[in-house]
Design a binder for these strands. Sequence first.
RNA 1: GGAGAGGUGGGUGAGCGGCUGAAACCAGCGGUUUGCUAAACCGUCGUACUCUGCAAAGGGUACCGGGGGUUCGAAUCCCCCCUUCUCCGCCA
Length: 431
Amino acid sequence: MLDYRFIVENLPAVQANIANRFMKADAAAAAKLFAQRTELATGLQALQQKRNANAAAMKGNLEAEARKALIDEGKKLKDDIAAAEAELARTEQTLEAEARRIPNMAHPEAPVGKEDKDNLEVKRVGAPAKFSFVPADHVKLAQDLDIVDFDAGTKVSGTKFYYLKNEGVFLELGLIRYALDILTKKGFTPFITPDVAREEILEGIGFNPRGAESNVYTLEGEESCLVGTAEITLGGYYSNMILPREKLPLRMAGLSHCFRREAGAAGQFSRGLYRVHQFTKLEMFVYCLPEESDRLHEELRSIEEEIFSGLEIPFRVVDTCTGDLGAPAYRKWDLEAWMPGRANPPSPEGGDWGEVTSTSNCTDYQARRLNIRYRDGDGKNKFVHMLNGTAVAVSRAIIAILENFQEADGSVRIPNALVPYCGFDRIGGKS
RNA sequence: GGAGAGGUGGGUGAGCGGCUGAAACCAGCGGUUUGCUAAACCGUCGUACUCUGCAAAGGGUACCGGGGGUUCGAAUCCCCCCUUCUCCGCCA
């Protein structure tokens, strides 16, 4: 969340930012509550001071009468303090609830807009393949090649679950290993994280673990959830810690399963592997000094580009618009891969872009809630900046590979960079 | 899951109702001494919030795993939770 004082001192800018992001939050109310809170806290401190003085006056031997007077005074103070504390606690609670609805400030250059079609395309890499036939979508390809079983997933686990099977298994493992090798060469520390996290960590990262619109599965009887991304477990890793300045930036690569309720998500573009309840993802995460977060955000984006260029998958990069940023992000780049199977109606040259990665600079928005700081040169503890980015979201990468590298005979070529990791250069067809 | 013992400042660790924001030691920082290093000695050494002040600085409040309670007064007593260790059970 934002710093209370920042909200007060920059109220018009905060309000404009809320409007640009099409979010509902009342910054003026938060500012007012903050002033109230400070006044109540000051009043409470004055009472506490009296209480301490009263107790100190009672240390030595006293005549019974004097002692009784002090005890009576102390009892009265105790009641006053209890009342003041209750009021302060109520105000703080309301203040926090109000402040938590306020999104992070957006980068001044982030395009202003309401939804994903307002995102700004900044770059294209690679050219979509020209097919001599009408390409199939990944659902048909995967089923024909017997590498994904959607029907069994639905029967055993429910809709939007699936089994990977045969080469599909090695494709997942190969993609992970391929990306992990790139990241470790770039100084990322590899992790396999828990797939479960406490609600307080989810909230600190900016997720809402409960409620009808939540995308998170909560565990019954536990105050914890299945993670939607390793961003949660990597971001919680250093919660309540003060990091040594000289160790920054910290680069982490976290492999986890990702669980998403996707309540209400439906439609043609959610078909197959595109929007599922469980998938595997390798996530990048960075803790850094405020002055280097813009630069590291570019670094994360360029790594994502390197990974997808290496897979020979055509993609474009978009600068995500304010309305599509999500509350914690200051700026966000998405990589959208070309997906020939998304053509409607199907055609040899048709297709559409589908999001495969996303990298966000969340500045100190998450660090403030999670209480992650570093000691600056002036001796003050300051909040770190935190960034995240997808290295590989396996299910979506598989879509891109199947649809882009399919051939007339229904087989799928494996991109060269992946062959050593998979142990085969083609799925199906000629062999 | 059951039983027991713990969680105190950067570290070790004392304190177990008022004399404790917290002994002592170590590390750190500043200084004295010193041919250099080392040692010795002296001083200093938590965080957050808040008030006064142009500032330097000073005052106040809170914090001894987290949250509640008892009391005029809690690191200290009680309850709940988290967590670490030991033993038992169970299991990959």
